[in-house]
């Protein structure tokens, strides 16, 4: 063993120690479970070892690893989308006439203030978990990672129209989920006289 050719296991462990936290945080925001995120980080490190020859020193190691992880996550969702239609479990928000099945309730208050509430943020995180394998990454990449439409389309391998449909559906379902979980909960009710 020489300095120029480190043992692969040692190399992977070094990457894990230096960049594991960042990679895990990145993967966990985009995958439905911690176990899935861990598997993807492991696959990423193994793929990185194979591709180490392609690594050009000008990119930071973490940027390079994150790029590999991104492709692994995209593959994960492509497989998941083929496997199941988890979104079907969520309530269909529109009826056959394409009107709201249940009209959105009055949350009261200022949206900016609602967004500050820790309970609201926690409820949103829980609702995000319930979105399925096609809706969740679309929303996460768009809103949490602020990627541009073209970048998301190439990452998820969808057309702009398809992405627009997914984002609208994700937003409507998140709203619906929040109304059921956050707004219906006692602490979710904004201050002021109770309606109805």
């Amino acid at each position: 063993m020489t300095d120029s050719a480190p043992d692969p296991l040692q190399q992977a462990e070094t990457w894990l120690a230096d960049h594991g936290d960042a990679l895990l945080a990145y993967a966990m925001r985009r995958t439905p479970s911690a176990a899935a995120a861990e598997d993807l980080v492991q696959e990423t490190l193994l793929a990185a070892l194979k591709a180490a020859g392609e690594f050009r020193g000008q990119a930071a190691v973490q940027t390079w690893l994150t790029g590999i992880l991104r492709r692994k996550i995209a593959d994960f969702y492509r497989r998941a989308a083929r496997d199941a239609r988890v979104e079907a479990e969520l309530v269909e928000p529109f009826n056959a006439d394409r009107q709201w099945r249940e009209r959105p309730g009055d949350w009261g208050g200022d949206p900016a203030q609602i967004a500050e509430s820790a309970e609201f943020q926690a409820a949103l995180a829980a609702c995000l978990e319930k979105l399925g394998p096609t809706l969740r990454p679309a929303f996460q990449l768009r809103v949490l990672d602020q990627l541009k439409t073209e970048e998301i389309c190439s990452e998820l391998d969808v057309t702009p129209t398809n992405l627009s449909v997914r984002l609208a559906r994700a937003r409507v379902l998140l709203r619906e989920c929040l109304e059921r979980t956050w707004f219906a909960a006692p602490q979710g009710k904004p201050p002021g006289p109770a309606s109805d």
Binding site: A25, R29, P111, A112, L124
Partner: peptide, 24 residues
């Protein structure tokens, strides 16, 4: 209903951006 959706979406988008900043 749609007016409320538009308002509520502001809260959702803004809260989601705050979530993004948190280490999960």
């Amino acid at each position: 209903g749609c007016r409320r959706f538009r308002q509520q979406l502001k809260a959702i988008e803004s809260a989601a951006r705050k979530l993004a900043g948190q280490d999960c």
